[in-house]
Design a protein around this nucleic acid. Sequence first.
DNA 1: GTCTATAGACGGATAGAC
DNA 2: GTCTATCCGTCTATAGAC
Lengths: 205, 205
Amino acid sequence: MAEASTRGHIVEAADRIFYENGFDHTSFADIAAAVKISRGNFYHHFKTKDDILDAVIERRIAATRAMLDGWEIAGETPEARIASFIEILHANCEKIQKFGCPVGTLAAELAKLDHRALPSAVALFTLFREWLRRQFAQLGCGPSSDQYALRLLARSQGIATLANAFRDRAFIDAEVAEIHDWLGARVKEAKSRMAALGVRQRRPK
Amino acid sequence: MAEASTRGHIVEAADRIFYENGFDHTSFADIAAAVKISRGNFYHHFKTKDDILDAVIERRIAATRAMLDGWEIAGETPEARIASFIEILHANCEKIQKFGCPVGTLAAELAKLDHRALPSAVALFTLFREWLRRQFAQLGCGPSSDQYALRLLARSQGIATLANAFRDRAFIDAEVAEIHDWLGARVKEAKSRMAALGVRQRRPK
DNA sequence: GTCTATAGACGGATAGAC
DNA sequence: GTCTATCCGTCTATAGAC
């Protein structure tokens, strides 16, 4: 009971501090101080820093799954659901300007550290990629769906990186608007594509 | 002479190791080992780790200036010069997959460390931004030039981040091709824009 | 009395600065 | 070459629950 609570508090604090200050730069003492427990107590819950990282990534994966499921339910159309994804750039605007994207910056750091948990961090990207691919497929983008998913992910990452560097909110707004336009164009493209396929499928009959 | 040479070797090694392993994670011993000098000799050239970082950023700024000047001379048209920028994603393909973009990952790390050198690192981005803005302006993109410069920078950053995470060379190739298409569209847009302006300017006369 | 959560101290290792 | 700070990991001690 108390264990689950304390452990939860540790992971929650570690998640935030890893995001704000980086994984490698964060010490046990930093996390312990944030949770207000002793370092001795800390080792009762986690043997190594890598164990905490694993727990943090698991927590992020669960949170991401929940968020994507929420969008799946709330969004009436694939277009609306993809738009939900684009809007996280607005929703997390302040944090992105201060610390960048939590997914992208963690993966980049773990790649430099040559850390064994890198694949787990990349799995977070894969969650988004697969989800977006499904949405584009439902939109009717066919074999281009994965490419569009990756492109949207990449553009979001780039916007986060530059917004972080330049601390520029207006830039985020402008790019988000442009991506919404791009999504609209994909919808139109898919519609005409489906119409052409419909003609082709009807012809031979 | 020997001093300048040793100092240069230190900065060169630090530049590479900061890129490959990250700034915070790199120790004096790591750099000293790479240059094969004693730690005592090290302090003769640099007082603190931050001093090395400053020197590394200066070096990168000089290298970037030289590269941009080279493109300016070699490229016949603004379109060709912008294409040179896009092609660095191909040229540095292997390193990007392993370590990401040197500019973006350094700025992201310094932002998390809340490091005083962050503005210097962002100046690297500004070099590219200003150069690209000038090229788009010469292309005839008018007031959209800075927006296009930022968009191209952001897309490159996003591609580097995802290529680093997924270690996917084919993704880089596909996105580079798409960005070249986008550039072609901007050229056409600028031409029709200039034609319209030409008509307007001639009419009143 | 045992198990568990918590606290705090000790030692080795390493990094940065002089 | 040395000094100091810090961090990691382990060890022991205490308090309360069952």
